[in-house]
Design a protein around this nucleic acid. Structure first.
Lengths: 148, 148
DNA sequence: TATTGCTCTAAACTATGGTTTAGGGTTTAA
DNA sequence: TTAAACCCTAAACCATAGTTTAGAGCAATA
């Protein structure tokens, strides 16, 4: 049941441009990929697992260089389990931080959307504008609003 | 109680480099900021509100150009409320997508961390390595593991 | 009043993560 | 056996989001 896959197969499976896969290979992210006699990359099923991991780390904002470090640790066998664990624990904290920031920002966006969607949106925004204009005038600063 | 603030004050408040604030101004994100006779930027309290919004959009991955568009709509007064709402609704969907991706990726990371933290980590990883090596051998591909 | 610290612009530079192009070989199917 | 579809590398190119530098002016204080 074992099968070989081309770079195109991989690109389609992960919805990535072929050029990106080549780029990742050049950056050292794909040391597990073989090449055939013609110099073509040939992928096996287990390579898909590694690439899935690469996409997961990429999607959570890990820089290419660090992904490469992680993959290289994987290639060094069981002796690097502790290092991989530390690396992923640190990254997990980054992901949790990103989630927190995203949540907080989403609240701000929802607050604004509620205002814009309110029946009273016009009056709310008008009042805000007037407040800013008053403050700017008091401080002798230019009125930033373009409403002539 | 009205007060003026320098670029340094703003930088410290938002924990941004001064150079970034100048960069945002150059990119058109800060049309509400005045300058004094010496050409120095002077910020008022209400400017902090706009900049808070800019940071919120930046933190959720909105490109500079789109933030500029949003701020410019704000400066055009109440007539652009509907456009602002659409812009933010679209962006909110992006944020929700980001959250989904982050959640899914976090699950994968946790799965790996569980493995690395297990008492049986060594055996689990060993077995995985052997599986890959067998597959690669069957397909006549090189063994990517560096364990001599 | 002079030093220190703050500010400015313009332009060059950097980092990251790719994409595109040029030139050329391989594979498959009609 | 040839055209279409694939694959390769190297190198140039691009976009985004800044940062740094150079050269200069303003402000506060000892």
């Amino acid at each position: 049941m074992e099968k070989l896959y081309s770079i195109k197969d991989v690109a389609e499976h992960f919805d990535l441009p072929i050029s990106t896969i080549r780029y990742y290979d050049k950056k050292g992210l794909l040391p597990f990929v073989s090449k055939n006699q013609a110099g073509y990359r040939v992928f096996s099923k287990s390579d898909f697992g590694f690439i899935q991991t690469i996409c997961c780390l990429k999607n959570t904002g890990m820089p290419i260089e660090k992904i490469r470090d992680y993959i290289q640790l994987c290639m060094q066998g069981t002796s690097t389990i502790k290092q991989r664990k530390y690396l992923l624990q640190e990254h997990k904290q980054n992901v949790l931080d990103q989630q927190r920031i995203l949540n907080e920002s989403l609240k701000e966006i929802n607050t604004k959307l509620d205002r814009y969607s309110s029946d009273d949106a016009f009056n709310i925004i008008s009042t805000q504008i007037k407040y800013v204009e008053t403050e700017k005038r008091t401080l002798n600063l230019h009125d930033p609003f373009l409403t002539k």
